[in-house]
Amino acid sequence: MEASEVNKKITSSEELYKRACGFLPGGISRNTVFRLPHPYYLKSASGCYLEDIDGNKYIDFANNMAALIHGHAHPAIEAAVIEQLKKGTACTFATEAELKLAELLCTRAEGFEKIRFVNSGTEAVMAMIKAARAFTGRPKIAKAEGAYHGTYDFAEVSQTSNPSNWGDIENPKSNPQVYGTPSGVTEDVIIFPFNDIEKTIAILDKYAGQIACVVIDPIPHRVGLVEASADFIEAIYQWTRKNNA
């Protein structure tokens, strides 16, 4: 079905969007749900299928940005959530459930030594950058041009660089993501070209004594889900070991 055909059928979603614009900035709570001319409002979801409030049905290829690997409303997950609801869901106590999940993750993934649970990827990256700066005593971070790592000011630098502002490939420019970003933010973010070992190492070497950490996504979706080569990842890893970053 063409998008125009879907939009012809949508009436309730349009009305909800008009109402939402009066209470939510831009009418939405996250940019990823926006569609022209307005977002579609969900009625129900099951497995890989979605239905909006106007009765239009869709196959969900996004799965909430890949977070729902079991699909929507999986019976076993529903049962576990309902059981936990009876016991309470949020309190200022530690829980055995978080310990069990941490144990499971650490035993299944050899690279996981310990786990810190947070509310979002943005919060995880923010905490990691702060920890790296505290540990090394250095202010700068380095990241690949075009890569998305959440909405923390430092992590989103040069996320949407383009030919008009990305500068020389030998020394990519650090561009703010949003208006009003302090200049001190971009000054403390070093940008390198994705999957280019020689140029990346040369750039990192220039700031070796100032870099607290290198942030890397092996399959960055904002640059087309191009997989980082094993050699590229290994070169960066070895550089961080050599330079205590």
Rank of each mutant, 00 (worst) to 15 (best):
N195R: 03
N119Q: 02
C91R: 14
L42Q: 11
M65H: 08
P37W: 08
A230I: 08
Y152M: 12
E51G: 00
T95F: 07
K199R: 12
L36Y: 05
N64A: 01
R138E: 00
D231N: 03
I59Q: 14
I141A: 05
R241I: 13
K43P: 13
N244V: 15
A102S: 07
G88T: 13
F93K: 04
T181G: 03
G26C: 02
M65R: 11
A109Q: 05
T160K: 08
D60P: 00
P75M: 00
T107P: 15
G224S: 10
M65T: 08
Q238M: 14
R19L: 12
N165I: 01
A144Y: 06
A76P: 06
M128A: 09
D231C: 03
G180Y: 15
I236K: 14
S161R: 06
V157L: 07
A202F: 05
Q238R: 13
G22Y: 04
R116T: 15
S120Q: 04
Q177P: 01
S120E: 08
H149G: 04
G180E: 13
G71K: 10
A90L: 11
P37S: 11
H221T: 03
I233E: 03
E96L: 04
H221K: 06
G26V: 01
R133I: 01
I197K: 14
F232E: 05
S183M: 15
A127D: 05
T122W: 01
L68K: 13
I191T: 04
G209I: 00
